[in-house]
């Protein structure tokens, strides 16, 4: 019996070590292995090295780009689009979600519309957006807003609808006015869901920013990647892809750090990076 218990403890302990230590290391090791395979495959010409330059060449191109002025203009215009759309989506999505979650009448009014619009892949509305808004930033930001708003809206509605009845009644015993009730009870009580929606939309905003930049205009990382491909500057093309991956990683990391801080009251709310 004693021996059994010890074994359980032993395996339990080992699993734990595995999860936080070796687990993470092996993940990095896999990435490094893949990068090495990339380098070798292309250097020894298993694959056409014009379309598929060695990693070292791509890294060299990446360094050159980072040291140039132009790429920073592209990065900042992509980020500007991305965040404008994202912020607008939040500004509309959270209040509308709260109203829909609180009022059955407003919910009934908007729900069919939401259910019809939401399944449309955002890329499919680009032609319509171009017709009405042109090919400049107005259209691009509109498409980003359209894509980002659904996860925020749906999660906000869910969060508001699932607030504990006791919490609502507690709020009512303090005789709050409407604004106090929404801002001090409903918003914080549904914030775990809202934050989840915001995190999904953050990734979406970057995807859509790149997509619309590839469709029209002459700046942004999306444009940079497509332009490099069209001018046969393949190392630059790959360096653009790596850059956008890094930007996505950093944005997500910042968001996770920030929300873990803001949400530290919520037991069990620790968003992880993946």
């Amino acid at each position: 019996m004693n021996i059994d218990l010890k074994l359980v403890g032993f395996w339990g302990g080992e699993k734990h070590v595995n999860r936080i230590g070796i687990g993470k290391l092996s993940g990095f090791a896999l990435i490094i292995a893949l990068l090495l395979i990339w380098e070798l495959l292309s250097r020894y010409s298993f694959i056409d090295s014009v379309f598929f330059p060695p990693l070292s060449t791509v890294i060299y191109a990446l360094m050159t780009e980072i040291n140039s002025q132009n790429i920073w203009i592209d990065i900042s215009s992509t980020l500007a689009r991305c965040f404008s759309g994202y912020i607008i989506a939040i500004t509309i999505g959270i209040p509308v979600g709260i109203l829909m979650g609180r009022s059955q009448r407003i919910y009934n009014l908007f729900e069919p519309l939401v259910e019809i619009l939401r399944p449309i892949p955002s890329a499919a509305i680009i032609p319509v957006a171009i017709l009405f808004l042109g090919i400049e930033d107005k259209m691009k930001i509109f498409v980003i807003v359209f894509a980002c708003i659904w996860p925020i809206l749906i999660n906000t509605i869910d969060g508001v609808k699932s607030i504990d009845r006791i919490l609502i009644e507690t709020g009512n015993t303090f005789r709050l006015n409407r604004n106090q009730f929404l801002l001090r009870i409903v918003l914080p009580a549904s914030s775990p869901n809202i934050v989840t929606g915001m995190r999904i939309s953050l990734a979406i905003s970057l995807i859509l920013a790149i997509t619309v930049e590839m469709i029209s205009g002459n700046n942004g990382i999306g444009f940079f990647i497509l332009d490099a491909e069209r001018s046969f500057k393949f190392p630059q093309m790959y360096s653009g892809i790596i850059m956008i991956g890094m930007i996505g990683y950093i944005i997500n990391w910042g968001f996770v750090k920030l929300t873990n801080r803001v949400m530290k009251w919520h037991r069990g709310f620790t968003a992880t990076l993946v």
Binding site: L167, P188, W265, H266, R267
Partner: peptide, 16 residues
């Protein structure tokens, strides 16, 4: 003021 039977659900979890 009303102190609820379900006091653990009645406290605001986001407030200290």
């Amino acid at each position: 003021m009303l102190v609820f039977q379900e006091y653990n659900r009645s406290l605001f979890p986001w407030r200290t």
